[in-house]
Nucleic acid binder design. Sequence first.
DNA 1: TATCCGTGGAT
DNA 2: TATCCAAGGAT
Length: 351
Amino acid sequence: MTAALLAWYDRHARLMPWRTGPAEKAAGIRPDPYRVWLSEVMLQQTTVAAVRKYHERFTTLWPSVADLAAAEDADVMAEWAGLGYYARARNLLKCARVVMADHGGRFPDTHDALIALPGIGPYTAAAIAAIAFDRPETVVDGNVERVMSRLFDVSTPLPAAKPELTDHAARLTPRDRPGDHAQAVMDLGATICTPRNPACGICPLRAPCLARQRGTQDDRPVKAPKKPKPQRTGYAYVGRRADGAWLVETRPDKGLLGGMLGFPGSEWGETPEPTPPLRAEWRPAGEARHVFTHFALTLTVMVAELPPANPERGHFLAADRFDPTALPTVMRKVHEVAAPHLDVERPGASG
DNA sequence: TATCCGTGGAT
DNA sequence: TATCCAAGGAT
């Protein structure tokens, strides 16, 4: 079964910036652990399509773990903006600095040492050990769970089924080419054994697949029902000084959008109170809607021209240093609502 | 074990 | 429009 999967992978492996090409593979060259680590962290709960450009940008700006470890926190957070799950970016920096301080700038090559690093859990530790160092570790992500649940027709609902699925995956892990095997299962799950309408007809594991034999593939994996999303509201305050500077704040490291740049605002809940960050003629400019993983948010966007006084919250950022692409998506939406209401006369510009 | 933590594309 | 869900980790 493993041989058929590897043969399929040799023909159909997807090309990605962090993978070695056919020529390098033929020469026995392993992928760069730094690039593999970066890709695996970015790929946590994130699509390959979204990760590609971020990975390219990061490795251009910071070609090695030493470069990344020496980067400014704010620069890294700004580059991560839009990718989501911002704790990953904070842990990415922590991890890079631990690798420099405690591992001489080289990523450890064992599962146990890897999982001790910030932002590296069971999946990522196994993935780096297998892909970068070709260790016979068993990688279990959402793809592997789906493939195993179908291959062995597991009817236990997730997440309770995880140990059972991990057990199946472990038994299939070969001593030879474990790194390619891990990526083969994931590629299979991403391109053939997909969540909906799996392409069983061209699947290399079609013959032994129990779900295929029994016709249950559309009902695997079984998942526990999800909870409904609560609706929350709040206020966001977008103010500009006469010189064009924007009032922004860096959010605290913990919690939602931790460490990211944003606009001051109220609490987000059922009936939030307005909390303007300083005295001004605040007026409503519109609403910004955004859906997070576990709640939906509607923000009333308030705008104002601000006096040069020091704000109680946040700080002023000069117009030429303000970049909306450095904002998390919800704050970028707030900016889009506010900006047309806050045109300022630029010094030297004539109107 | 359950909850929190983003985003955008597919259907 | 609503729902799913993607190479999960931290707490």
